[in-house]
Each structure stands twice: as structure tokens, then as C-alpha cells.
């Protein structure tokens, strides 16, 4: 096998249908870029989930009586509740938040809205026991055990709001993947088409190769490599696109969100951990498409 010969055939082939080659590479790049974007969204969501579920709490709001008269959770009702919560399975920590502490926190959160602060009175806020669960899925059993108990007003789970948020993010991710898939289909058809055109424009060479007894690898490898080149170049462009997208769009538009640590920052490390996947998917899928096209459409 003479590598230089095969290589020069590949270059000739790609140069001969420049427009098709460009179209094939761009479509592949867009498809892989969307795939990469989807993978980054998945990584971000995963990290957000870990981060958020660690921070969310199950809150047992206490009755008005306890809220008003028991600022240190020393009454028998309150301390019994706390004790039972602490010994319940799946509970990590239990912290008592008095009415005053709740009001202080409220003031901190809404310090930007003085009108709201003026209206607020500490009496409006209940005291609570804030429960950190080692496993958020434990919430229903806690809720069931403590709802309606003396001294308990209601039991809420902050995780429920998060689940709604993550459902929205999952939808975003799925939409990205669907678009990537449609693009991928277009890319596959273009690759297949380009190989057919390439084989047609080189039918004289291929004819001579067959007659002189070139092996199938020799006649078909240049076409396969053309497809793989498209896959790899498309992958590289996709990675460049992701980097540009990060610098020019995500970092700017989501700057505030990153600053507030609401969404974990997408770093270069994330992009470069997705990069090999894109290159691999690009080249393998392109090679398979090329191989099938040659088997189906090009006579050997």
C-alpha cells in the first residue's frame, strides 16, 4: 500500500468537487456542533443537579403558636419534632430557623426591594425546621410522617421547583439532540452523495484500477478517506464553533448567571472533554456512510 498515492488521490477527489466538499463539511460541522452543544448542556445539567439537590432542603413549617412563642425550639413539641426528624432515615441535618432568623433572611434576600421590606412584618413568617436529606427522593416519606402532626403547619420540598426547572432544561437538551439528529441525517446524505459524485468523476481511474487488478482497498480507500476527512474537518470546525460560541455568546449573555453561580460555568475543559467524542463520532459515522455507499452504489 503506497500511502502517498492514496493520499494524493484523496486530495484530488476533494478538490474536484469543491462545492460539494464544502457543503458536506459544513453540514457535518453543524451537526457535530449541535451534538457537542447537547452534550455540554447534559454536563451542565448534571452538575447543576448535584449542586442544587445538595442545597435544597425539605422545610417543616411550624405552627403559629411555636413561631410566636418558641424562639429557641425549646418547647417539648418543637424539640420532640426536631429529635424525630434527626433520627428519621435519610436525614443529614436538621436546623431550626426561628421567626426572627427567617425575617432576617427575608430582609437579606429582598434588600433590593425596599417597598416589599416596608410591608413585611416578622409575624407573617413562620419558624421552621430545615431538613437536609442525604437523598432527595426520601421527601415523600418525611412529608407523610410529619404532615398534620401537632406543631406542624405544613411540609414543603424545594426540590419540586427544581424538578420543574430541570424538566425544562431536559427539554432544551432533547430539542438540541433532535436538531442534531436531523442535521446528521442531512450530513449523511451529503457525504453519500459526494462519494457517489466523486466515484463518478473518477470512473475512468477506477475503471483502470479494476482492470489492472488493484485490490478493493486501493480503489475504495481514497473515497472512504474523503468521507473521513469530511468527518474530521467537520469535527474540528464544530469544536472551534463551540469555543467561539462559548467566548462570544455563552460567557457574555450568561455572565450574570455564572457570577451568581446559578448555572455552573462551562469551561474549556468541558469543551475539550466533548471534543474527542465529536471527532470520533464524525470520523466513524462518515467512514460507515462511505463504506455503505460504496457497497450499494459503486461497482467494484
Amino acid at each position: 500500500m503506497r500511502a502517498s498515492f492514496v493520499f494524493s488521490e484523496v486530495v484530488t477527489g476533494l478538490r474536484r468537487n469543491v462545492t460539494m466538499t464544502v457543503a458536506m463539511i459544513l453540514t457535518t460541522a453543524i451537526s457535530l456542533g449541535l451534538l457537542g452543544g447537547g452534550l455540554l448542556v447534559v454536563r451542565t445539567i448534571d452538575r447543576m443537579q448535584q449542586d442544587y439537590y445538595q442545597r435544597v432542603e425539605t422545610v417543616v413549617y411550624l405552627s403559629a403558636d411555636i413561631s410566636a412563642n418558641d424562639p429557641g425550639c425549646t418547647s417539648s413539641t418543637c424539640s420532640a419534632l426536631r429529635g424525630q426528624l434527626e433520627s428519621a432515615p435519610g436525614v443529614q441535618t436538621v436546623i431550626f430557623e426561628s421567626r426572627q432568623a427567617a425575617f432576617a433572611r427575608f430582609q437579606r434576600i429582598f434588600q433590593g426591594q425596599p417597598e416589599l421590606l416596608q410591608l413585611a412584618r416578622p409575624e407573617a413568617l413562620p419558624a421552621s425546621l430545615r431538613v437536609q436529606l442525604s437523598d432527595p427522593a426520601r421527601f415523600p416519606s418525611i412529608a407523610k410522617a410529619f404532615t398534620g402532626r401537632p406543631g406542624v403547619d405544613r411540609v414543603t420540598d424545594q426540590g419540586e421547583y427544581l424538578r420543574q426547572l430541570f424538566r425544562a432544561l431536559d427539554g432544551l437538551r432533547n430539542a438540541t439532540f433532535v436538531i442534531a439528529l436531523i442535521q446528521a441525517l442531512a450530513a449523511l446524505l451529503l457525504i453519500s452523495n459526494t462519494i457517489q459524485i466523486s466515484a463518478f468523476t473518477r470512473r475512468a481511474e477506477v475503471g483502470v484500477m479494476r482492470l489492472t487488478g488493484a485490490s478493493r482497498w486501493y480503489t475504495q480507500l481514497p473515497f472512504l478517506l474523503e468521507a473521513v476527512v469530511a468527518g474530521v474537518v467537520g469535527g474540528v470546525l464544530a469544536i472551534v464553533g463551540l469555543v467561539i460560541g462559548k467566548v462570544a455568546f455563552v460567557d457574555r449573555v450568561l455572565a450574570g448567571v455564572f457570577e451568581a453561580a446559578i448555572v455552573p460555568r462551562i469551561g474549556y475543559a468541558d469543551i475539550f472533554s466533548v471534543a474527542p467524542v465529536l471527532l470520533l463520532v464524525g470520523s466513524v459515522v462518515a467512514a460507515l456512510t462511505g463504506y455503505l455507499t460504496l457497497r450499494l452504489y459503486v461497482r467494484t
Binding site: 475512468a204 483502470v208 484500477m209 482492470l211 489492472t212 488493484a214 485490490s215
Partner: peptide, 26 residues
């Protein structure tokens, strides 16, 4: 094998045409 229509490669020189038959069998 030779044919009525020669089947030479138009973009290669005479010696490249002949060499091609050897190149493609390695």
C-alpha cells in the same frame, strides 16, 4: 487488456498513465 477506445487517463502524462497501473497494485 486493451480496448478500441484506449481508456487513457486524460489528466496524466504518458509515463504517469503507465505508472498508474503499477502504483495501484502497490
Amino acid at each position: 487488456c486493451v480496448f478500441q477506445d484506449f481508456r487513457l487517463l486524460a489528466n496524466k502524462t504518458v509515463s504517469e498513465n503507465v505508472a498508474f497501473a503499477l502504483e495501484v497494485i502497490g
